[in-house]
């Protein structure tokens, strides 16, 4: 106890130096778990689409099935969230200067948020057309 450099309050809060505790770690794991079935589904679907009829009509017909559209939205949301968290760790590891680190971290969040919005909107537009 006496040679612990953290104060009792800090240990009770459990937030650490990044001030968000285990939140990042935890949501990276939860998104990874969600991605296990979603990725298997996506890889098998993509292989099937790529080796079958790749006309616009056939692809649009596939996407517009409710079960496919909903699963695609879930896949996009889970993937891009997990990817945003993952790339954040890589940036934190390799970009050292505080100013450029902050800039690149923000850019990472924006790019992933835009991709998620665009991807989900595209699926809905095709499915509801």
């Amino acid at each position: 106890m006496s040679n612990d450099l953290r104060s009792p309050l800090s240990r009770a809060r459990g937030l650490g130096s990044a001030k968000d505790g285990v939140h990042h770690f935890w949501v990276q794991r939860v998104s990874a778990l969600a991605l296990v079935p979603l990725s298997l589904w996506f890889v098998f679907s993509i292989a099937k689409l790529a080796t079958g009829n790749t006309s616009y009509a056939a692809l649009a017909y596939w996407i517009s099935a409710p079960s496919v559209a909903v699963t695609l939205v879930l896949f996009l949301a889970a993937t891009l969230y997990h990817s945003m968290l993952g790339v954040q760790v890589v940036i934190e590891d390799y970009v050292a200067a505080p100013a450029s680190k902050l800039t690149v971290l923000m850019l990472n969040k924006f790019v992933h948020a835009i991709a998620a919005a665009a991807g989900i909107f595209a699926v809905l537009k095709i499915a509801l057309a």
Binding site: L59, A60, L76, A122, I126
Partner: peptide, 9 residues
């Protein structure tokens, strides 16, 4: 993949 879906849309 997002680019592909956007082009489809």
């Amino acid at each position: 993949v997002v680019g592909w879906l956007t082009a489809m849309a």
